[in-house]
């Protein structure tokens, strides 16, 4: 019936003209530190949570959180790109 080129609305689907990232933190057990496990793109918190859950599912995490990358203030990496480096 239909076979079309996907058309996107960047603003709605990506949360802006540039992608919006969330950093993903998780721990395996209460003895483990909460560590950075990666990064995921999402236009809203709900999708960030789900995408993080399915992309970084290498362990049965006891705890996982996402933080908008914009919210991260670098301390030692002053002057460099404020990205969080992959764990």
């Amino acid at each position: 019936m239909t076979e079309n080129e996907k058309r996107f609305d960047r603003k709605r689907e990506r949360g802006g003209t540039t992608p919006r990232y969330y950093e993903v933190f998780a721990r395996k057990s209460s003895a483990d530190p909460l560590t950075h496990v990666g990064s995921v793109e999402a236009p809203n918190d709900d999708l960030a949570q789900v995408r993080a859950w399915f992309v970084y599912d290498q362990h049965a995490w006891k705890e996982m959180c996402v933080v908008p990358t914009d919210a991260i203030v670098t301390v030692t990496e002053h002057g460099k790109s404020a990205k969080i480096k992959m764990n």
Binding site: A42, N44, D46, L47, Q49, V50
Partner: peptide, 13 residues
């Protein structure tokens, strides 16, 4: 919970 959160996220969009 996660499957429904996925549709929630997309409903927002």
């Amino acid at each position: 919970y996660f499957h429904l959160k996925y549709t929630d996220g997309w409903m927002r969009i």
